[in-house]
Design a protein around this nucleic acid. Structure first.
Lengths: 335, 335
DNA sequence: TTGTAGGCGTTATCAG
DNA sequence: CTGATAACGCCTACAA
């Protein structure tokens, strides 16, 4: 009942040549007459032949496939990265597996194991929560890897990184808040295990220090990286510390939650409380009041990650790069 | 230099058995002593052995892989579908290829061809813009398929569909606008080639007809399915037809654009103009004023699509289902 | 320019 | 219960 797949052999038979000639014709290789090639290509087209990527992969040990692991595609930040990564992959004839790690180490491991089993040519791993020594195992398993939002303890020739300078960004935001006269600046810090969250915390501290202010851990509230998380954390914070007049949020989603909390508690933004988010997702300019934020171009990060991977593929010599992206302080009505 | 992959053969040798015994042990098959199995499993673990999915696929003609084609993952609507689909796939041991069709027929074709070449076990195709006869070709190429937001002219045993009842939704929205006293209801219709857009247009017309109002094509404006598209189309419409006091938008993104246009032109929403979107993406309740919308649970659509695919996989008898999802009118401040 | 033999890592089939 | 052998569809290397 099932239609059998057309194979090289079928085409070869139909064309009256050996299967190697067909293979050469399909792959545009040297050593074959132009007329022969044209004839074979035509026959193949007529028969509806497409080389099996599976068989090809087994023979060549290359799958023309990349893996993309993100915490959550439904987070606009990663959705844009995914689009950028897939666009670049498409342009270069690669396909991409999309895996969500769901902020869970176990599922992240499972995602990477699955990619390993699928023998992808490279992996883009975003915001990994795995400990360094565990990551090391995967560095060895995969031919190349790009880490987004995660540092490397020591450089690896097969691993590149793309990091947003969250620390500098957070510091810049705090400086700005200080300069505009805010007296009590709080941090809604997102998940405690987040690496970029820790970097923002560091920037928050150093920004405070630069203004000769002391750090108060009461001013830091952890929460899930969502609007709901931001709402709850901010409400909690504001009830305990009504004097807070500025909030730096883990990301824009959390910041929007903060906005909602302020509204719910009757705190006018930005008159009474200033709010600054991170990421500059489209939502930031669509909420009312519009959100000030530390912006980066997510789509380009995705593209860059794929391109890095593919470059590492050709330049065997290319050492593990470490790209750093400086966020930009986008001031809107809230900051 | 490269570490060679550990194969069944290596494990078999280390265990002093044949490779078939190892294969059986790994796959939990019958016909092997419990002690032997445990011993082999242990050895395999120690050696860091993982079966090559590539080789396995070649032998079994199954890849444990699905394809998901969406117009654009960075559109929150599809991002949530993607998450739902991947979650369900993960739970069942499948991986998913993510492809963006970018609203272009050529890229959609290319995406499907690529999946075909990769020999995926099934495909979820969202909002296809391909003509029916061309789709037919792919129905035959893929073992099973689920179409989201696209009808089937005649049922196919290997194809299921999940459709939001856009027509009924649009009609419901128009009825509501009429009942709340709106006199001039416009439609910002999205891309002219969109199937669900056409369904909304039909519902818009029948809603008007049900209220004994005549349809005026001047009240319909096409645009790209984005906030920017909605902004521009609405501005254009409102300038040409200042009497418009209600807008039904192609989706929430477009509706938010409409909101912005109204604001820019000094038209108060909802006092002067009512706006209703479609999809109920998170953004809808985050903008100010909050957006009324025809809501569906996107995440569940994604899950359902994957589950349908996997069910078709086991129930050979299962005929091509056609699930229809009724949208719900979510009234907020704008409607 | 073209064809032949061998192998990529696994599973199916059929003996033992 | 276990093992040898033949696919699976393609490519590399070498021979003609």
């Amino acid at each position: 009942m099932k239609k059998k797949r057309v194979t090289v052999e079928d085409v070869a038979q139909a064309a009256g040549v050996s299967l190697m000639t067909v293979s050469r014709a399909m792959n545009g290789r040297e050593g074959i007459g132009e007329e022969t090639r044209a004839r074979i290509l035509e026959i193949a087209r007529e028969m509806g032949y497409r080389p099996s990527q599976i068989a090809r992969s087994l023979a060549t040990r290359q799958t023309a496939t990349l893996g993309l692991v993100v915490p959550d595609v439904s987070n606009p930040f990663f959705a844009h990265i995914a689009r950028g990564a897939e666009d670049a992959a498409y342009e270069n004839g690669y396909s991409v597996f999309l895996l969500n790690s769901a902020e869970e180490a176990a599922r992240e491991r499972s995602a990477l194991d699955s990619l390993w089993q699928k023998e992808v040519d490279g992996v883009i791993l975003c915001s990994s929560r795995l400990p360094q020594d565990e990551l090391q195992v995967y560095f060895e398993r995969f031919p190349r890897m790009v880490l987004v939002n995660r540092d490397l303890v020591r450089p690896q020739s097969s691993v590149a990184t793309i990091n947003v300078d969250d620390r500098a960004g957070a510091e810049m935001a705090v400086r700005h808040l200080v300069q505009t006269g805010r007296g009590s600046i709080a941090l809604i810090a997102g998940p405690e295990t987040s690496v970029s969250g820790q970097r923002r915390l560091a920037g928050y501290k150093s920004g405070l220090a630069a203004a000769s202010r002391s750090f108060d851990r009461q001013m830091v509230e952890y929460c899930p990286p969502t609007t709901a998380g931001g709402l709850q954390a901010t409400r909690h914070l504001l009830e305990a510390h009504p004097e807070v007049d500025a909030i730096l949020a883990y990301n824009d989603l959390v910041a929007v939650g903060a906005l909602q909390a302020c509204k719910g508690l009757g705190r006018d933004v930005p008159a009474r409380v200033a709010v600054i988010g991170v990421d500059d997702i489209p939502l930031a300019s669509l909420v009312q009041p519009m959100l000030s934020t530390l912006g980066v171009n997510q789509y380009e990060i995705g593209r860059a990650a794929t391109c890095l991977l593919l470059e590492m593929f050709s330049d065997e010599t290319l050492p593990g790069q470490a790209q750093v992206i400086q966020p930009e302080l986008v001031l809107r009505e809230t900051g």
